[in-house]
C-alpha cells in the first residue's frame, strides 16, 4: 500500500501541454496557455495545483473538466469557516457504535473483540480527504475555496498533501492507494500561508480575453448566431471595465447568453427593456444595477456591436 502511494499518475497519457489543452477544449473548457501549462506540470510532477482568481472565472470548472478528461471520479471538499477534521477527513459512526456496544453486551462478547470491531472500517465514515486517498483509480480531489477554511485546517491539509497519508488514532496510518490529482481554489478571502503556496504549482486565472471568451461561448452555446455572440462578449467585456462591486464572471456571461437566447433577442440594441431584464444575470447587487441604468446599458451595447 505504502509503495503504491508513491507512484505518480501515469505519464504516457500526457505528452505535452498542448494535448492537454486540446483535450480540455474537446470537453468544452477553453483553457489559457498559462493554465494548461500549470495543469500539465502539476500532473506530470504529481503536485497539487493552486488556482487563484476572481469568483466566476471557472476555477471549479477546471477540476470538473479534468475529471472528465481523465474519466475519473471528482471528489469535492467545500471549505468554510470552522471546517474541522470530522467533516474533512473521517468520523466514526457513533450511533452505530452505540448500538453495536449494546448488541455485543447481550451476546456476551469480550472487550478486545468488541473494541476491534467498533474501530474497524465498518464504522468509519469517509469524508472527502480520506475518500480521495482510498480510491482504486487516481481521482481528482477538488478543495474548493481553501481560503475560507481556518489557518489550522490549512496546516493540516499541508501535511496530508505532502505525505498522502492520514492517521486515525484507533486504526493507525492509512497510506494512499493512488495519489489523487489535487486542485485547490482560492479567491482571496484571506491570504494563504507561504508554506501552502510553496507546495503547490500556481496559476492565476483571470478574466478571459475577447477571443478566448468568444471561444468559450461558442463551445457552450453553439446555437447562438455569430453576430449576437460577438455582441454579448463585447458587452460583457466592456461591462467589466465599469466601476462595479462585483464584476460579472464567465459563468454570469453564459447565464446572460442563455437568458438572451431564451428571450429570443437577435440583437442587443433591439429592445432596451429586454436587455435590462436580462442584466439581472450579470449584475447581482443593488448598487451595480443602479450603476448601469438603461441608457448606459444601451450605450455599451451600441459600442459592442
Amino acid at each position: 500500500m505504502g509503495i503504491g502511494g508513491r507512484q505518480r499518475p501515469p505519464a504516457q497519457t500526457m505528452k505535452d501541454w498542448r494535448d492537454l489543452q486540446s483535450d480540455f477544449a474537446r470537453h468544452g473548457y477553453v483553457a489559457a496557455d498559462d493554465l494548461s501549462m500549470a495543469l500539465h506540470i502539476a500532473l506530470a510532477l504529481g503536485r497539487p495545483l493552486l488556482l487563484e482568481g476572481e469568483a466566476g472565472v471557472g476555477k471549479t470548472e477546471v477540476a470538473r473538466t479534468l475529471a472528465a478528461v481523465k474519466s475519473t471520479a471528482l471528489i469535492r471538499l467545500q471549505c468554510y469557516e470552522g471546517l474541522d477534521a470530522a467533516q474533512a477527513i473521517y468520523e466514526w459512526n457513533y450511533q452505530r457504535q452505540l448500538l453495536a456496544i449494546r448488541a455485543s453486551a447481550e451476546a456476551g462478547e469480550t472487550g478486545r473483540v468488541v473494541e476491534a470491531r467498533l474501530f474497524s472500517d465498518e464504522f468509519l465514515l469517509e469524508r472527502p480527504l480520506l475518500k480521495a486517498i482510498r480510491q482504486p483509480v487516481s481521482p481528482v480531489l477538488l478543495i474548493d475555496e481553501i481560503d475560507r477554511a481556518d489557518e489550522e485546517f490549512e496546516a493540516y491539509l499541508l501535511e496530508v498533501l505532502s505525505d498522502y497519508q492520514i492517521t486515525v488514532p484507533e486504526i493507525g496510518t492509512i497510506s494512499a492507494i493512488t495519489r489523487p490529482m489535487v486542485i485547490l481554489t482560492a479567491n482571496g478571502t484571506r491570504d494563504l500561508s507561504d508554506a501552502l503556496r510553496r507546495r503547490c504549482i500556481y496559476a492565476h486565472v483571470g478574466y478571459p480575453d475577447r477571443a478566448t471568451e468568444l471561444a468559450i461561448l461558442r463551445s457552450r452555446c453553439p446555437a447562438l448566431s455569430d453576430a449576437l455572440s460577438r455582441q454579448i462578449i463585447g458587452f460583457v467585456q466592456a461591462l467589466r471595465k465599469e466601476e462595479l462591486d462585483k464584476k460579472p464572471g464567465v459563468a454570469e456571461m453564459l447565464d446572460f447568453a442563455a437568458a438572451l437566447a431564451g428571450l429570443g433577442l437577435a440583437d442587443l440594441t433591439d429592445d432596451p427593456v429586454v436587455l435590462q431584464a436580462a442584466l439581472g444575470t450579470l449584475l447581482k447587487t443593488q448598487s451595480d444595477r443602479a450603476a448601469v441604468p438603461t441608457e448606459v446599458a444601451q450605450r455599451i451595447a451600441g459600442k459592442a456591436a
Binding site: 496557455d33 498559462d34 501549462m37 506540470i41 482568481g53 500556481y202 496559476a203 492565476h204
Partner: peptide, 11 residues
C-alpha cells in the same frame, strides 16, 4: 510558462 507556474506564488 513552466517556470512561472512553479516559481510565482501569487497574482
Amino acid at each position: 510558462m513552466a517556470l512561472q507556474c512553479v516559481c510565482a506564488g501569487s497574482a
